[in-house]
């Protein structure tokens, strides 16, 4: 509980005075899984209080079995709370009408394996109030969006894990929802898919939609989420803005290009003179993600087998040389509007 109040305090600090619309609200939400005879099996969630506001990307973090999926299912009305309440769009979570505005990507893609991608989307589309024309247009758009044009007429049983995941995502977006809940959206996706998924999530946020996602791919969460809640064994341990939570107050970072060794040592000297402590002055290494994205981009431009680096070649060097150009475009850019957004608040 202490963690909870302190978390609320952290959150309260930068919160704008402008009233924001609350999309999801859980009050003292607890869930105990029981067996057939009503005996307690697990307490999966212990009095959770969170509020998700319109237009934000909210992340639920936590180790396996910490109650992330349970929370999402409670919000969807797939589970009933043992105590406490969940309000979604100010309605009780068990009301079906709220679903008109909700999209849900489950942990694993629970889809009908005997349908093709197109049939699947058409089926889910029919469950909403939209005209046949709208539905067909939407199915078309989504198949393109998730990149399954080539496999649209194949049954899902033949799909790879990532492909199924993509259909699952398309299915969640079929009604152009205002609130999207993604349970581990990036599992099973290749790095490009992951990148695209992250871009998509940011894109949705920019359209004014609310996204609730849970994941333990910390890097992904860090890239996209505005706020996160960290759960452990069903308890809320931390809640706040990602930028605030991750800011290390007493460390300063400087990025520069084209410095000579001479300059570096001078800078270290300056720091020392001001009473600071130099932790490291290094060349940055590119991430595996950058390397991978680079290779794929290259191969899409020039199809065919890639010439593998010979012993003399230093792969790290080539990656590093690619990195500076790749980084601002691929990695930093999507994140920057978020920071801008923060600044604007």
């Amino acid at each position: 509980m202490e963690t909870n109040t302190s978390a609320v305090a952290t959150e309260a600090a930068p919160a704008s005075p402008v009233e924001r619309e609350v999309v999801i609200e859980t009050r003292n939400l607890s869930k105990i899984y029981r067996d057939f005879w009503g005996r307690k099996k697990v307490q999966a969630l212990k009095s959770l209080d969170i509020e998700v506001q319109k237009g934000e990307i909210f992340g639920l973090l936590g180790p396996n079995g910490s109650g992330k999926s349970t929370t999402i299912k409670l919000i969807l009305g797939l589970l009933f709370p043992t105590s406490g309440r969940v309000l979604v769009f100010d309605k009780d979570a068990t009301e079906t009408r709220k679903n008109e505005r909700i999209g849900y990507l489950p942990e694993e893609s629970y889809l009908y394996k005997f349908l093709t991608a197109e049939e699947t989307l058409d089926f889910y589309g029919r469950l909403f109030d939209m005209s046949g024309e709208d539905r067909r247009r939407r199915v078309e758009e989504l198949i393109k969006l998730v990149g399954l044009e080539h496999a649209r007429h194949r049954q899902l049983r033949e799909y790879s894990k990532g492909m199924t995941r993509r259909v699952g995502l398309a299915q969640a977006l079929i009604n152009d929802p205002d609130l999207i809940m993604l349970d581990e959206p990036t599992t099973g996706l290749d790095p490009i898919g992951t990148r695209e998924m992250k871009d998509l999530i940011l894109n949705l946020r920019d359209q004014g939609k609310t996204v609730l996602l849970c994941s333990h791919q910390l890097a992904d969460v860090q890239d996209v989420c505005d706020r996160v809640a960290i759960l452990h064994q069903g308890e809320l341990k931390e809640l706040g803005r990602v930028s605030d939570l991750l800011k290390v107050q007493d460390v300063t970072e400087v990025h520069a290009r084209g410095l000579s060794e001479q300059a570096k040592s001078e800078i270290a000297e300056v720091i020392r003179r001001h009473g600071g402590e130099v932790e490291s002055i290094d060349n940055p290494t590119a991430t595996m993600e950058d390397l991978f994205l680079n290779i794929v981009r290259e191969s899409e431009a020039r199809p065919g087998a890639r010439r593998l680096s010979t012993a003399g070649d230093d792969p790290a060097a080539s990656a590093a040389s690619a990195a500076p150009s790749a980084e601002p475009s691929a990695s930093d850019q999507p994140a920057s509007p978020k920071r801008d957004g923060d600044a604007a608040e």
């Binding site: 969807l76 009305g77 797939l78 079906t96 009408r97 679903n99 008109e100 909700i102 849900y104 489950p106 694993e108 629970y110 889809l111 009908y112 889910y124 469950l127 909403f128 109030d129 699952g168 299915q171 009604n175």
Partner: peptide, 14 residues
């Protein structure tokens, strides 16, 4: 059991 019902009841299906 296959949880396919999850994706259906989370649509506005009565």
């Amino acid at each position: 059991q296959n949880k396919t019902l999850y994706t259906i009841v989370t649509k506005p299906v009565r």
